[in-house]
Design a protein around this nucleic acid. Structure first.
Length: 508
RNA sequence: GGCCCGUUCGUCUAGGGGUCUAGGACAUCUCCCUUUCACGGAGGAAACACGGGUUCGAUUCCCGUACGGGCUACCA
């Protein structure tokens, strides 16, 4: 049974890179009829942000990335929140195992002590000082101190951390699902803190303990974790437990400039970095979300899936179910992918184009009731559907429908001067006077028949239809460009068309 | 600085020793369609980072360099 997990920290809203990580983990699990687990890694109490956990749940749900178990979903490995698991003593149990096997030790140095050690090293010209085999005997820990002293300090309740004892000089190798074989020299790995002074485990210990206990078979995470992978190999080795398969995903990069996509890039560059809108509980600052911007969850996911992965075919539009079928780690890229906001919109546009008019009409109908009022004569399903048919190809988002076709809902209050000055002349005036009668004679007020009648009248009067078409468009909508003219006429119906003609005539 | 990872059009990417005259998509430009604007269609411009090897042959394999990215906390 394949089991993957997504394990975010509730330090703020999930950003789109995190969503992609969750997505890949989900796709992989589902493809193999496995399970996908949501675990909350809240071991840093200082960085806890209220509302962040709820946000994560809501965001994943919106995206359709539904966990089989986890916080908010239950499951046989409860609890799924690390702060709660800490209280069960899980992490300390494993730390003790490491201590007992001689693979970990107590360290009593304060954060300040280490700061000083680091600064001294820096002053002596040593870069990158670290707590490791080369320095640990000069520091205060159960390896450098006499046994009784350690015991004494512990009995006294002296503050301590538990560190991993890294054996230098080994080559640590593992096979990454996207990168293949990767190796490191253990000499460069520091003695990572496993249990912090506050009793909480660090990420390094916690994720391993939980992955073991939750029977995770594939650990999928961002590339920023690759450098700490050797420490994780060592922990598994010391525990004598086989390591799950790891996959380190390439990062999402800023659309312009250098570096990875960060929370701050979003609204500054005019696109959201978060799936859902987020209001910072402290500053009150609001960051936009894809959902609120009008993106379909499917398109958002589709776009994310293709950032760093591709199916190897030329198909680009996929549903979640299709992605589940064809996703694979060997087609995940190794290098970072620069995010392109324009392409993101294109995915939405594609999905909108392929959505049935009836469904779009339904949505638009609800929107119209909100905008115009439920008792407005145009707030009907049939009018909304008719309008959608005319507007569909001109927008990328459903929420652009109304603004794009505003003239379909209100008569013009002004008319495009350029067209008027060019086309409004005596011949046009006569034409317009005759137009209502001609349009009235049409057996059915359809686009085809009104168009034919319109053109016939023009020809009968000795003018080219082209000379009055755009004028008529302006009379109908106020503007020189827009949706199909006779489609609009048919949608309006006879009364509204006459009404708009009268309106124009009384203005000119 | 050190360590790790990476490098094909502006962007996402296909390809992977000869078929590469390097393919697709977004964006961009031109033309066509059209009453307009879109849509759609056709076409254009646009890339194998550089230097050494290996080889009959390298964009593809190896090594360097450059550049980019990540990490370098009692944060995840």
């Amino acid at each position: 049974m394949i089991r993957t997990r997504f394990a975010p920290s509730p330090t703020g809203p999930l950003h789109m890179g995190g969503v992609r990580t969750a997505l890949y983990a989900y796709l992989f699990a589902k493809q193999h009829n496995g399970q996908f687990v949501l675990r909350i890694e809240d071991t840093d109490q200082n960085r806890y942000v209220p509302g962040a956990e709820e946000y994560i749940l809501e965001a994943l749900t919106w995206c359709g990335i539904i966990p089989d178990e986890g916080v908010g979903f239950g499951g046989k490995h409860e609890p799924y929140r690390q702060s709660e698991r800490k209280h069960k003593g899980f992490y300390m149990d494993y730390a003790k195992r490491l201590l007992n096997s001689g693979n970990a030790y107590y360290a009593f140095d304060s954060a300040d002590d280490l700061d000083i050690a680091r600064k001294n090293a820096e002053a002596a010209g040593v870069h990158g000082w670290q707590y490791d085999a080369s320095t640990r005997m000069n520091l205060r820990n159960s390896l450098s101190l006499a046994e009784q002293e350690t015991k004494h300090l512990l009995d006294q309740g002296t503050s301590y951390v538990i560190r991993l004892k890294v054996q230098p000089g080994q080559t640590l190798t593992f096979t990454d699902m996207v990168r293949g074989e990767v190796s490191f020299d253990s000499t460069l790995v520091d003695d990572k803190v496993l249990i912090k002074a506050d009793g909480m485990p660090t990420y390094h210990l916690a994720h391993i303990v939980d992955d073991i206990m939750m029977e995770i078979t594939h650990a999928i995470r961002g590339e920023e974790w690759l450098p700490s992978a050797p420490a994780h190999i060592l922990i598994y080795q010391s525990l004598g437990i086989p390591m799950p398969q790891y996959a380190h995903l390439p990062l999402l990069l800023k659309p312009e400039g250098n570096g990875k996509l960060s929370k701050r890039d979003g609204d500054r560059l005019g696109f959201p970095v978060f799936p859902l809108q987020w209001k910072d509980p402290i500053t009150g600052e609001v960051s936009s979300g894809y959902r609120e911007k009008g993106y379909y969850a499917d398109s958002f996911i589709n776009m994310l899936a293709l950032l760093g992965w591709n199916p190897g075919t030329e198909q680009e539009v996929f549903s979640l179910d299709e992605l589940v079928k064809i996703f694979s780690f060997d087609r995940v890229h190794k290098s970072g992918a620069r995010f392109d906001p324009d392409k993101a919109k294109w995915f939405n546009e594609q999905r909108l184009r392929h959505t049935d008019d009836a469904i779009l009409g339904e949505h638009f109908y609800h929107e119209l009731k909100n905008i115009l009022g439920a008792d407005h004569p145009l707030a009907t399903l049939s009018y909304a559907t008719g309008a959608v048919k005319l507007l569909k190809e001109r927008v990328q988002f459903e929420n652009e429908l109304y603004e794009t076709g505003k003239y379909l809902f209100e008569a013009p209050t002004s008319y495009d001067d350029k067209v008027i000055s060019k086309r409004w002349n005596d011949a046009a005036k006569v034409f317009l006077q005759n137009l209502p009668d001609v349009l009235s004679s049409v057996p059915e007020f359809t686009a085809e028949l009104t168009k034919a009648a319109f053109e016939k009248l023009a020809i009968d009067q000795g003018i080219k239809p082209g000379e009055v078409l755009q004028l008529f468009r302006v009379i109908m909508s106020g503007q020189g460009s827009g949706v199909d003219l006779f489609g609009m006429v048919a949608l309006f119906g006879k009364d509204e068309v006459f009404e708009r003609i009268n309106r124009f005539q009384s203005a000119y």
